[in-house]
Simulated assay, not measured.
Amino acid sequence: MESAHVTVPASLLLLEDDELLASQTRRALARHGCQVHWAADLAAARALLDTLPALEAAVLDQNLGADNGLDLIAPLLARFPECRVIVLTGYGSIAAAVAATRRGARNYLTKPASAGDILDALERDPGEPGALPEAPPSLQRLEWEHIQRVLDAHQGNISRAAQALGIHRRTLQRRLKKRPSPTHFQQD
């Protein structure tokens, strides 16, 4: 749920390698009045940094194939010291959240995150409750993340993923329909 006090950044860098998710996120943030500059990998993001006159915020996907979005935090903050940075990932952990904030990220969110979630995370002070994970994810969340990694490794092929997981294809389909409740990574 979006807070009334949220300040929408005029200019935001979105580093996301999933083109569909990037397109949806860009449209959602644009509806809030934010100009979104998108890059799909670290090289494109670094090149984009050199062309932007100002940047108020950045949303960085942590897992970018062989790249890690955390590697953009230092050059980004060197160029735009006041930029508010959050890291967005599909496979969250407390250790990764701590690593992101130690590098200078303001906050850390797990996917999926709405435009309201992103704007709230950009606004939230790192010292506020909910800015960092306070408890490990639930077992259901860990299972969901493991299933997603196996499914990704098998290019979305449910039959092959089920075989790799040692479960029946229909069982995997049922589990995929049961998305776990939000983790402890975010407080409502």
Rank of each mutant, 00 (worst) to 15 (best):
L77A: 08
A78E: 15
R79E: 11
R79S: 14
R79L: 07
R79Q: 15
F80W: 00
F80C: 10
P81G: 08
P81W: 07
E82W: 06
C83L: 07
C83P: 04
R84C: 09
R84A: 15
R84W: 04
I86Q: 00
V87K: 02
V87R: 04
L88P: 00
L88I: 03
T89G: 07
G90L: 09
Y91K: 03
Y91P: 06
G92Y: 01
G92W: 01
S93M: 09
S93W: 08
I94S: 06
I94A: 04
A96F: 04
A97H: 03
V98Y: 09
A99S: 14
A99N: 11
T101G: 09
T101V: 13
T101Q: 15
R102D: 12
R103Q: 15
R103C: 09
R103P: 00
G104Q: 10
G104E: 05
G104L: 10
G104H: 09
G104T: 10
A105V: 09
A105I: 10
A105D: 08
A105Q: 09
R106M: 07
R106T: 11
R106N: 15
N107V: 01
L109P: 00
L109N: 05
L109G: 02
L109H: 07
L109S: 00
T110L: 12
T110Y: 00
T110C: 14
K111H: 05
K111C: 05
P112Y: 12
A113D: 05
A113Y: 01
A113F: 09
A113H: 07
A115L: 08
A115I: 06
A115S: 14
D117G: 02
D117E: 15
I118L: 13
D120L: 05
D120N: 15
D120K: 05
L122Q: 06
E123A: 13
E123V: 05
R124C: 09
D125R: 12
D125P: 00
P126T: 07
P126F: 02
G127N: 11
G127H: 11
E128Y: 03
E128R: 02
P129K: 00
P129D: 07
G130I: 00
A131V: 02
A131H: 01
L132P: 02
L132D: 07
P133S: 12
E134R: 11
E134T: 12
E134K: 06
E134H: 11
A135L: 14
A135W: 00
P136K: 07
P136V: 12
P136Y: 11
P137F: 04
P137Y: 02
S138C: 11
S138Q: 11
S138Y: 04
L139P: 12
L139K: 12
Q140S: 14
Q140R: 14
L142D: 10
L142T: 08
L142N: 08
E143M: 10
E143P: 03
E143Q: 13
E143D: 13
W144F: 15
E145M: 13
E145P: 04
E145G: 02
